[in-house]
Structure formats: C-alpha cells, structure tokens
Design a protein around this nucleic acid. Sequence first.
DNA 1: CTGAAAGCGCTTACAG
DNA 2: CTGAAAGCGCTTACAG
Lengths: 339, 339
Amino acid sequence: MESKMNLKQLAKLLNISISTVSKSLHNSPEISAETKRRVQELAELHNYVPNVFAQNLKTNKSQTIGMVIPEISHQFFTQVLEGAVSETRKKGYNLTICISNESLEQEQRIIDELIRSQVDGVAISLSEETFTLDKMDHLKKLKKHGISLVLFDRVDPNLGCDTISINDSINAELTIYELLSRNRKKILYLSGIPNTSVNERRKDGYVKAIDKVHTPFILEVDYKNFPHSEILKFIKTNNIDAILASDELTAIQIMRYLKVKRYNIPDEISIIGFSIGNLGEHYLPSLSAIDQKAEEQGRCAVEILIDRIEGKLQTEPLAIQLEANIIHRESTLMKKPIK
Amino acid sequence: MESKMNLKQLAKLLNISISTVSKSLHNSPEISAETKRRVQELAELHNYVPNVFAQNLKTNKSQTIGMVIPEISHQFFTQVLEGAVSETRKKGYNLTICISNESLEQEQRIIDELIRSQVDGVAISLSEETFTLDKMDHLKKLKKHGISLVLFDRVDPNLGCDTISINDSINAELTIYELLSRNRKKILYLSGIPNTSVNERRKDGYVKAIDKVHTPFILEVDYKNFPHSEILKFIKTNNIDAILASDELTAIQIMRYLKVKRYNIPDEISIIGFSIGNLGEHYLPSLSAIDQKAEEQGRCAVEILIDRIEGKLQTEPLAIQLEANIIHRESTLMKKPIK
DNA sequence: CTGAAAGCGCTTACAG
DNA sequence: CTGAAAGCGCTTACAG
C-alpha cells in the first residue's frame, strides 16, 4: 500500500500551494485551466481520495441520513429499504441502515449512535416495544441536536414531526365492504401482531365496517406460537366464511392449516391479508392482499426527510397518508359470487 | 436547539484546559477523581457528544466496516445481515450496509464510496454481473488503500483475500446421493440463477454425483421469466422423478406448477432446493432444503474481517468453508421409500 | 490567478 | 495533576 495521498503531498509534488490544489479539485473558476488539468491528472494518478472526516469537520455536514427499521426479516421492510436506497442515491446522500429488532433499548442505542455520527436526518419506523412502553425521549433528543426526524409506517402523531403512513383503518374498512358485497357474512379479523399501532388501526377499521351489519369476530394470537386448532374451532363454531388477517404470515399460516383440513379456499372461506410479501404471490392458492406501498413509503420518507434537511419545507409538520390497493388474487376469487 | 457543545466550551465553563476536559472524558488515570467527576457531570448535563469527524481525523480509524450484498429481497441475504449486525455490535464496530442490486457499476460506486468514508474493512458477496464480466479491479483498489477485504458466499478464490463460503459442490453431491438412495433415478438439476458462482458449483456437484450412475438432466432458466410449460414438457419427456433446484424461489415456482398440474409431491416427484428462506417452510407441502447457514456466514465474515483489521491473523488468507445441513421437509418425505 | 493563514474539534506527547 | 501546543486534512475568506 502506497502512503496515503493528501492535499499537502500533491501540492509539494506540483510545487504549488495547498489552497490551489484544493480549489483545482473542486474545479473552481478562480484557477487557470492549465493548473486544474495538472492537479486533476496527478490526483487521478495517485488515486487521491479526499479525507471525508476532514471535509465534514470543516463543513459540518455529513450528507448522510439514517433509516431505522424494526425488523429485517419482514419483506415489508426490505421493500421499504429498496425505495429508500434508490431515493437516497438519487439525491446524492448516503444511507445508514439500522435495525432495532423491535427493542426499545436497541432503538435508543441506535439513535445515540446516529447522533454521534452526525447524520443530517433520521427516518424511523418505531419498534413494538417503543409503542408498548410509550417512551419517546430518545426521539426528542434528535431535535435537541438539530437532526430532522421523519416517521414512517409505525407512526406516532404526537411527536410533532413529519409522518408517512398508510390509512390502515380505512383500508380495513374498504376491504370488509368488499367482502360483504361478495356476500361473506361471518368475517373474522385474525391478528398475529397484537400491540402494534398498525394492528389497532386495522382492527378499528374492521370493527367500524362490520358493526353496521354483523357481529365482529376478533382473534389475536402470537404468530410465533400459532394456535392452529383453537382458531379452527373458533371458525367452525362461528361458521366463519372469510378472514381478514393482520399480516401476510398470519394469513398464510391459517390458510395452510385450512387446506390441510381440506377446506376449499376461497369458496368455503375467503382469505385476505395486509401487506405484500413474497409468501403470498407464490402460494397455492395465491393470497389476496392489501398492498402497503412499502417501496413508496421508503422513497417518500427519504424525500420528505431530505427536503426537511435542506429547509425546503414549511415549519408545519406534514402528515402524509398514502393510498393502499386491494389486490385480489386466488384466495378471494370465488367462482360464483353468491347473489 | 441549543448551540452544539464542544470541548472548548466545556473547558471555558469549568475554567480548566481543553486537554484536561478531553482526558477526563476518557477517564484518564492522569486526572484527579474530583476533576473527572465535575467534567463528566457537566458534559452529561449539556448532552455533550464528541464530534466523530474530529476524532476520526485524529485517530485515522473509523471503527466502521462496510457490508455489500447483491440483493436485499432474498431472505438469504437478510439472514446474513442479521448475523453481521449482531456480530458487529458485539465487537463495538459500526456497520454500513450497501446493496449492489447485482450490478457491477453499482458495486464499483459503492466501493469508491466506502473508500471515501474510510471504512476499516469491507465484507462483500459479489454481484452476478461482477462474475459474468470478471472485473475485480475495484476490489483490488481496496488493498491499495489499506482496507481489509473479506468475501462471503459468492466468492472469487483468486483475489488473495479471506473467504467464507459453503462447499456447495459437496452439498449438491451429498443431496444427490440421498435422493438416489431413496430410489430416485431421473433427477433434474433446475437452475433459476445461471451465471453465478454458486450455480456453477452446485451444478458441478450434481454432475459429479449423477455421472457415476445416470445421465444428468440440466435446465437453466430465468426465474423472473419462468418457462413453466417448457419445464413440464421436459419433465414428462424424461420421466423426471426428483428435482434439485438451485434456490428456493425456483423450487417453489416449479412445485406450485406441478401441484396445479395435479402431480403428487413428493411421491411422484420429490423436490429439494438450496437455501432456507421463508417461502419453503410454510408451503404445502413444505419444501425440503439445503441450509446455507446464512446467519453464520454473516457472523463469520464480520468476525474474520475484524480480526484481520486488528492484525490478529496470519498474513496467509483464510478460506473458510462452513458445513451445510440437508433439511428434509414434506417435499422429499416419501411415504414408502421404494426398496 | 495563486498563496498564506485561520480554524473546524479533537488527541496526545511533552513540559511543568 | 494540569495545561500549552502541535497537528490530523481539509476549506475558504482574504491579500496580493
């Protein structure tokens, strides 16, 4: 390894001043074309790379934003990341990706770390534990340090910052109306993710829609410890003919079990779940789903965050709600919609 | 936002020198307990956070490593990330996650960016395009800048750096022997990921095992543009009774289609695929798979990289090969293994 | 068009 | 036990 090149060495080799070298590399109009050419050639030749720490120390900007997600094994969040990564690059920023593993303590540690590394802004989807314990002090710390904050997907409206989310409540409502219009009458809301803000909103929408015509049926379980037979018993007892699941994995798990038990899906029981992952598309039958616009949420969170950083936004915080799509695949396509 | 705290301001407030403040915050034994206490209290009170750029500029170390993965939508790589994230934290380093999207150009850009941001080391799984075009100059650049390099999973042995991988060839071989022992005779190797090093190695192992007894059947297709009916025709024509798929998605796609076509799996055709994602486990029938030890690869790559950075390793590059497991689930569990 | 100089915030060898 | 001073590599206002 050759000894690290820097402005000083380049200046010495060319017999000119450090200032001139620096300005040449920034293609400053102050400097003559000839000098710039010489400097740039030599820099190229020696693989000169400016020291980013020195630069940032001077300019006091890192051109970096942090994105904190609660989980990486959910397809939803990897799609968010894809949107965020491409948008960040488009804007010429760097992205630091952090994973809180649904833990408040890890989330706090991450925020401290992001403050330490002087990111210009943070986009975060809150961890389950952060919601349950309702501790937001670490997020307020960001403001103290002048770091912009945007919340996406799992959002707390009381934090006084920009938020990007999906109107889950309305989406649940609309989905139920659709199922009702297909003459489904006993619709179960099955949640595998209790204690999340999204679950509450989805459940609310379900209840709101159902309450007008029928009794609501609600079951909230642990998706890691899936109580198959209990759910089946509930389904039988109540003659359930459709299921709205809180998330893809919950939908797949119940669908699989019902198939093992020889249920005909979608004719006997229709199933639809929130969020588009890779599980549902390839299943047999393929799973109908409510598209959470993951990639767009990621893209949008980054866009708003950078606009905020660069002072392009009003002081008033934005609360953006993206529209979701209901995607009917095989698990809700009844052959003969009963009239 | 309060004006940013720094050593100078703390020193002024306490009426002592900057040096003493700095040493106190590092808990130096040079300083009296009383002074340290006063300094640390005031720093705490003012939410003092040291400027990481200034620190790094001085110490010339970033305590950061970069991990480059070709794709984030493959469960395999998110599992790698989980291992890498936790190992990095354990060692007190920071992790910068980058995604090349299987593109050489993006990979080059990422490497330049990592060099610019002075990471101490890089762990990378090469993009498909990098392999196809066999361009490795950007990786050699890292060496020029004194940045350690570790390759994992998609590995090139000629780069003279540490590598972590799975012995795919042997795993394919062992899998075939198992299928043969269950009296499968016409085994198809179906690849949805041509032009990757892993594909070549898996195919090699397959051929090596099959060649001794039977004719090899090989089909290489584009998983994004899956030619269902062509494959089915091939299966019929050649009386295929087992499939070894190059990856999970390929396995699922063909299994789904065969089920639609009323094939009995595993009895008529057994299916097994490389790598454990979330698709196979919940499928009906659940998919047998060769566990690629994703998390362990991530953990191990980071461990070796940091040992290398800290000079704890011999100069000789390491070539670590992890052992895989064959996990039999429903898609290979024949009711009556024909004697 | 070029250069000398100050300063970003920190660490650390050295002096007292 | 405390502090003055140099220096990490860069940018930029200022002078010439």
